[in-house]
Computed example of a mutant assay.
Amino acid sequence: MTSMPTSRKKPRPLPRSFYRRDPLIVAPALLNKLLVCHDGRAGRIVEVEAYRGADDPAAHSYRGKTPRNAVMFGPPGHMYVYFTYGMHWCSNVVCEGTVEGSAVLIRALQPVAGLDLMHAARPLAKNDRQLCNGPACLTQAMSISKLQDGIDLVGGDAYALVDDGVPPPVQPVQTTRIGLTKATDFPWRWYLADCAYVSRK
């Protein structure tokens, strides 16, 4: 199991300009940033996937704006939450690049704070590693649901993506995305090498 990255830098929310870029740039840059909840729960991002609007047949926004994906066409830096498989929520951050409707799916976190609250929210997790090692797991552990769809991660006070000075990895693992039937050859998934908290290697 890899050691947990640490920094003495004062944590600060990522600025709007961070997200106002192509998701293929934003996604790997999100690695090692923190997803923080107002109640003290926090996890370091260790795995992400990019979805690129009309250029990406696997993106929810590929065929245009709908009530379900409307947040993806809004300002960058907001959270897009969707329901999948009739039972799970997944959390994304909206980006803005060369096409509209772009976002980055947060696939896995390494828990760093509020683990007692995470275990209470996710009682089926047998250990800390299982708390956030998948997109549905982390939304349960962080109590993210449809209520958070559209919230501002830059200026809001409920959830934020935070930089505490730990840089993204110089050479993250880059692979194709998981669980798709379209655009299965796009290498738009990144994760930390040798990290025990990723969803799948």
Rank of each mutant, 00 (worst) to 15 (best):
Ala29Trp: 07
Leu117Asp: 13
Ser7Arg: 11
Leu35Lys: 07
Arg41Asn: 05
Ala58Ser: 15
Cys95Ile: 00
Gly155Arg: 02
Pro76Tyr: 12
Arg16Phe: 08
Gly53Asp: 04
Pro57Arg: 08
Trp190Tyr: 14
Asp194Pro: 06
His119Asn: 01
Tyr159Ala: 05
Glu47Ile: 05
Asn92Phe: 04
Thr84Lys: 01
Leu153Asn: 09
Trp188Asp: 11
Ile144Trp: 03
Pro57Thr: 06
Leu124Asp: 15
Pro76Ser: 11
Met72Arg: 02
Arg20Ile: 02
Asp194Lys: 13
Ser3Ala: 15
Ile45Trp: 08
Asp128Gly: 03
Tyr62Ala: 08
Ala141Gly: 00
Phe73Ile: 01
Pro135Cys: 07
Gly74Val: 04
Met1Gln: 14
Val81Lys: 00
Arg177Val: 06
Ala54Phe: 09
Arg107Cys: 12
Asp164Met: 05
Asp152Gln: 03
Pro187Glu: 11
Ile45Phe: 05
Leu153Gly: 08
Gln174Lys: 14
Leu138Pro: 07
Gly114Met: 04
Asp39Phe: 01
Thr181Leu: 01
Met142Phe: 13
Ala70Leu: 00
Leu138Phe: 07
Ala113Glu: 15
Val104Ser: 08
Arg68Lys: 10
His38Met: 00
Asn127Pro: 04
Arg20Lys: 14
Tyr62Asp: 06
Gly179Cys: 05
Tyr82Gln: 00
Gly134Glu: 06
Val198Phe: 10
Tyr82Gly: 00
Val26Ala: 10
Ala160Lys: 13
Leu115Ala: 12
Arg107Gln: 11
Pro23Tyr: 07
Cys195Met: 04
Arg21Thr: 07
Ser145Met: 03
Ser3Ile: 15
Met87Asn: 03
Val48Met: 13
Thr175Trp: 09
Asp55Tyr: 02
Thr6Arg: 15
Asp157Trp: 05
Tyr51Lys: 02
Arg16His: 12
Ser102Val: 00
Thr2Ile: 14
Trp188Gln: 12
Gly43Trp: 01
Val170Leu: 13
Pro76Asn: 13
Gln148Asp: 10
Ile144Arg: 07
Ala42Ile: 03
Ser17Phe: 06
Met142Gly: 09
Arg129His: 13
Pro169Asn: 09
Pro76Trp: 12
Val93Met: 05
Val26Met: 08
Ala121Pro: 02
Ile106Ala: 06
Gly86Glu: 09
Ala50His: 09
Trp190Leu: 11
Tyr62Ile: 03
Arg122Met: 00
Gly179Lys: 06
Val198His: 12
Val48Gln: 10
Asn127Met: 05
Leu31Trp: 06
Arg21Trp: 02
Ala196Met: 09
Ala50Lys: 08
Gln110Glu: 14
Trp190Thr: 13
Tyr62Cys: 04
Ala59Ser: 14
Pro168Gly: 12
Leu35Trp: 10
Ala58Cys: 13
Arg52Asp: 02
Met72Asn: 03
Asp157His: 14
Lys10His: 13
Gln148Gly: 02
